[in-house]
Design a protein around this nucleic acid. Sequence first.
RNA 1: GCGGAUGUAGCUCAGUUGGUUAGAGUACUGGAUUGUGAUUCCAGGUGUCGCCGGUUCAAAUCCGGUCAUCCGCCCCA
Length: 417
Amino acid sequence: MAQSVKGTRDLFGNELEWFQRIEDTARRAFHRHGYSEIRTPILEEIEVFKRSVGESSDIVHKEMYDFKDKGDRHVAMRPENTAGVVRAVIQHQMLATSDPQLLYYIGPMFRYERMQAGRYRQFWQIGAESFQVSTPESEAESLVMLYDFLKELGLTQLTFSINSVGTPECRPAFHEAFRAFFKTREEQFCADCHRRIAENPLRVLDCKNERCQAALEGHPVLVDYLDEASRAHHERLKEILGALGIPFVENPRLVRGLDYYTRTAFEVLSSDLGAQSALLGGGRYDGLVKQLGGPQVAAFGWSIGLDRLAMLMQQLHGNAPRKPAPILIPLGASATLKAIQLARACWAQGLDLVLETRGANLKKALTTANRVGAPLALILGDGELEQGVVAVKDLAAGTQETWNLAEVPAKLSATRA
RNA sequence: GCGGAUGUAGCUCAGUUGGUUAGAGUACUGGAUUGUGAUUCCAGGUGUCGCCGGUUCAAAUCCGGUCAUCCGCCCCA
């Protein structure tokens, strides 16, 4: 039997209901804040990711889902969408004016990884990117949007971890201090950290090895090495988040797995997600647009894992709420013709109504109606047809009443409210 | 990429030191009831025992490979 490709899966039923509910909630939040959707290709030239995410990152290093196409182009399935959005924004000259560009996306991403619960080769992200706004206020705006979106979904226990990773100008001073610190106790660090200290010293900070974390005790803190503007930026963001009541903690060891971040970096982890605890992350990336061939502009963004968010919703709230439609059961040929016309009148008014079209007997039809959770069964047989009525059975209560055919749409409409 | 497990009915799972005809619950189908579901009673399919190969008189069981899933690490969403 044919099977879905490893690490990919079909979305349907209850899980998809959560996906849709989350997506709808996110879209409303984005639109409230003036963000516009952008849909970029799943395939990009691999260079787009190498030049943005960073050659040294694991994503490019070992997780890229890449291949050569028939034209011998080296392409990759996008592992994240910031690079693609930046490429599109440059390609379409969307930064020709100095106006802010506020964009969001929802779509599948691909990383070639070993499978685990909550970690897939095709997974979904919802994300926001804002260009040409550099202030801490703009970051707070984006974070408030994110926070209120999560709150609307009923997630109130989440705390943002934030840090500032500085700028390319002030980071060298930190690197120097940090390497000096590392040297005083380098024998206590793992092999990976020895590799990291050379390639990307910041990543030593979030090594998961307990011994390394212990060895980091008293390490130089990034925030102390920020230039004055970055420090003020960081302080102002914290001030605003505090004033808005958004729960956050400062985490001086928070660095992100992507190389392009500057100044603000943040993430949210959830212990309810098992080993794959990262739920969302983001930050400022003021250098990336230029790095990909565009103008020097400020940029800020985040993305959230839709699969993991749906998993969280399932754990916290159980199955997604859904409301099956009432079902209309005709009995006999003449009643069936009338039933189709009646259903059409209801559909024309935007009402949900499922038509039983199998010609099934009443027993079977009611069994099905009960199983799918229909709230009402409208029964239209020859007897009802003669009297111009339908029998309406409330499947939860077991009670039954009679409606005139003409008043069915209005009555259905009333029960839906 | 590294390490460790699991795979039997649609679903959740039993299945003894290898033994002849493979099980339970649930779900499903039909009937008790040809116009009344969900409750009850009766009857009944539930199947490539993941796949391929090997050992054996004999494999769901042991061995190898493979595919898929799960857990830990790495990393991330």
